[in-house]
């Protein structure tokens, strides 16, 4: 079969599809089948990080991930409501630092940083955080405010 049925768990909700093409990318399933447009398409070559989502809590490039490969996993995107400790904390830090200009890269940065806090918690130094965010590009070059947000999110870690 090249378009069998599929089940996906996104932001705690189960979604079922009757015919999902085998080659479909997670990014396209999220945006076009589920209407979750918070996750952005940037380069579609794994270079910009705009499409970053969490797969079982780990940051993942949804443009380079087949939807069928993550059927058994829990997907978290920026369209998640309030209630996730790390995502909430990073959102608050970005708001407090005013860490966005056009906003296109912001969902990717927020999810990548939330994933990093889930992975490492307080053990991370600020340098390590910034090093780990190198896969996210801001074409407005608003990195100074993003770095301030990262520092705030790190300080707020329990």
């Amino acid at each position: 079969m090249t378009a069998a049925s599929a089940d996906l768990t996104v932001n705690g909700r189960r979604a079922s599809f009757t015919a999902l093409p085998d080659d479909e990318r997670l990014l396209d399933t999220l945006r076009w089948r589920l209407g979750l447009k918070g996750t952005k398409e940037g380069c579609r070559t794994g270079d910009c990080g705009a499409c970053t989502v969490l797969v079982d809590g780990r940051s993942t490039l949804s443009c380079l991930t087949l939807t069928r490969e993550v059927e058994d996993a829990a997907i978290t995107t920026i369209d998640l409501g309030a209630g996730d400790r790390e995502v909430d904390r990073v959102r608050a830090a970005f708001a407090a630092a005013g860490a966005l200009q056009c906003g296109y890269c912001t969902p990717g940065f927020v999810i990548a940083l939330a994933g990093l806090l889930k992975e490492r918690g307080r053990s991370l130094s600020l340098d390590e955080i910034l090093d780990s965010l190198q896969g996210n590009l801001c074409r407005c070059t608003g990195y100074a405010a993003i770095a301030r947000a990262a520092a705030l999110a790190r300080e707020a870690a329990p």
Binding site: S59, L61, A112, G115, S132, G135
Partner: peptide, 9 residues
């Protein structure tokens, strides 16, 4: 190799 998100896969 690539970024953290890339290295997760």
């Amino acid at each position: 190799v690539g970024s953290v998100a890339l290295r997760h896969r």
